[in-house]
Measured scan of single mutants.
Amino acid sequence: DDLEQFAKQFKQRRIKLGFTQADVGLALGTLYGNVFSQTTICRFEALQLSFKNMCKLKPLLNKWLEEAD
């Protein structure tokens, strides 16, 4: 599944880049005006958010990865 794959890759890249889940949540706030909690990022990576929320977060996290690289 696409979302599952993305969540896995996101977590690996985030760790490799040296960011915590909280860092990502704050960075999203800075970039897009939407601060996300560490818990939200954690749940995303664990696929524990609703499908709708996963779909909403994915493009933001994808963009963040591009910026962070």
Score class of each variant (00 low, 15 high):
residue 32 Y to T: 06
residue 55 C to M: 13
residue 59 P to G: 11
residue 26 L to H: 15
residue 55 C to R: 15
residue 57 L to K: 04
residue 46 A to C: 09
residue 2 D to F: 08
residue 68 A to R: 09
residue 8 K to S: 03
residue 19 F to C: 11
residue 36 F to P: 13
residue 26 L to G: 10
residue 10 F to T: 06
residue 21 Q to W: 09
residue 3 L to E: 07
residue 49 L to C: 01
residue 55 C to K: 13
residue 27 A to K: 14
residue 51 F to Y: 09
residue 62 N to W: 03
residue 2 D to I: 09
residue 53 N to D: 14
residue 37 S to P: 12
residue 34 N to V: 10
residue 66 E to I: 14
residue 32 Y to D: 08
residue 36 F to T: 14
residue 10 F to P: 01
residue 2 D to A: 15
residue 49 L to P: 04
residue 16 K to R: 12
residue 22 A to H: 15
residue 54 M to V: 03
residue 42 C to R: 14
residue 22 A to I: 08
residue 36 F to I: 15
residue 12 Q to I: 05
residue 7 A to Y: 06
residue 49 L to V: 00
residue 23 D to E: 13
residue 47 L to M: 15
residue 12 Q to V: 09
residue 39 T to Y: 02
residue 15 I to Y: 08
residue 31 L to M: 11
residue 21 Q to E: 12
residue 37 S to G: 07
residue 30 T to R: 12
residue 15 I to R: 07
residue 45 E to H: 04
residue 26 L to E: 15
residue 16 K to V: 02
residue 37 S to F: 02
residue 23 D to P: 00
residue 64 W to T: 00
residue 20 T to E: 03
residue 16 K to Q: 13
residue 53 N to L: 11
residue 26 L to S: 14
residue 9 Q to S: 12
residue 12 Q to T: 09
residue 63 K to C: 11
residue 58 K to S: 02
residue 33 G to I: 04
residue 11 K to N: 00
residue 60 L to K: 08
residue 68 A to N: 11
residue 56 K to C: 08
residue 18 G to S: 01
residue 48 Q to V: 00
residue 40 T to N: 03
residue 22 A to K: 15
residue 51 F to V: 14
residue 37 S to Y: 03
residue 48 Q to H: 05
residue 63 K to R: 13
residue 59 P to E: 08
residue 15 I to L: 09
residue 50 S to G: 05
residue 32 Y to H: 12
residue 36 F to K: 08
residue 39 T to F: 06
residue 28 L to A: 04
residue 9 Q to C: 07
residue 32 Y to Q: 12
residue 27 A to I: 03
residue 33 G to A: 08
residue 2 D to Y: 07
residue 55 C to L: 11
residue 39 T to H: 14
residue 7 A to V: 12
residue 56 K to V: 10
residue 35 V to I: 05
residue 26 L to C: 13
residue 30 T to N: 08
residue 25 G to V: 02
residue 47 L to G: 13
residue 34 N to L: 07
residue 66 E to M: 13
residue 55 C to E: 09
residue 44 F to Y: 00
residue 13 R to S: 05
residue 35 V to K: 15
residue 9 Q to Y: 14
residue 3 L to A: 00
residue 8 K to H: 09
residue 30 T to I: 07
residue 29 G to M: 07
residue 32 Y to S: 15
residue 29 G to C: 05
residue 26 L to T: 06
residue 64 W to S: 03
residue 63 K to G: 12
residue 22 A to T: 11
residue 58 K to L: 01
residue 11 K to A: 09
residue 31 L to D: 13
residue 45 E to M: 02
residue 50 S to M: 00
residue 3 L to W: 05
residue 12 Q to D: 10
residue 35 V to Q: 14
residue 55 C to S: 12
residue 54 M to R: 01
residue 9 Q to L: 10
residue 65 L to V: 09
residue 33 G to S: 01
residue 8 K to A: 13
residue 22 A to P: 01
residue 11 K to R: 12
residue 64 W to F: 05
residue 66 E to W: 02
residue 30 T to C: 08
residue 63 K to Y: 06
residue 51 F to L: 14
residue 42 C to P: 09
residue 25 G to A: 15
residue 69 D to P: 11
residue 23 D to Y: 02
residue 13 R to H: 09
residue 13 R to P: 01
residue 14 R to Q: 01
residue 21 Q to I: 15
residue 40 T to K: 10
residue 55 C to Y: 09
residue 13 R to M: 05
residue 10 F to H: 02
residue 23 D to S: 03
residue 65 L to I: 06
residue 38 Q to L: 06
residue 35 V to L: 07
residue 39 T to W: 01
residue 21 Q to L: 09
residue 62 N to Q: 13
residue 46 A to H: 13
residue 34 N to H: 12
residue 43 R to S: 03
residue 7 A to M: 03
residue 52 K to N: 12
residue 49 L to E: 05
residue 19 F to G: 00
residue 48 Q to K: 10
residue 53 N to S: 09
residue 15 I to A: 03
residue 44 F to S: 00
residue 63 K to M: 07
residue 43 R to K: 13
residue 22 A to E: 11
residue 57 L to Y: 02
residue 12 Q to W: 11
residue 25 G to R: 09
residue 61 L to S: 00
residue 32 Y to R: 07
residue 54 M to F: 00
residue 49 L to Y: 05
residue 43 R to W: 01
residue 33 G to P: 10
residue 51 F to D: 11
residue 21 Q to Y: 11
residue 49 L to K: 06
residue 39 T to D: 14
residue 43 R to G: 02
residue 47 L to W: 01
residue 47 L to N: 15
residue 56 K to I: 12
residue 59 P to Q: 08
residue 15 I to M: 07
residue 51 F to T: 14
residue 44 F to W: 05
residue 31 L to Q: 11
residue 11 K to Q: 12
residue 13 R to V: 09
residue 39 T to C: 13
residue 27 A to E: 08
residue 42 C to Q: 14
residue 62 N to S: 14
residue 9 Q to E: 14
residue 37 S to A: 09
residue 46 A to V: 04
residue 12 Q to G: 04
residue 21 Q to C: 09
residue 66 E to C: 13
residue 42 C to I: 15
residue 26 L to F: 15
residue 56 K to S: 10
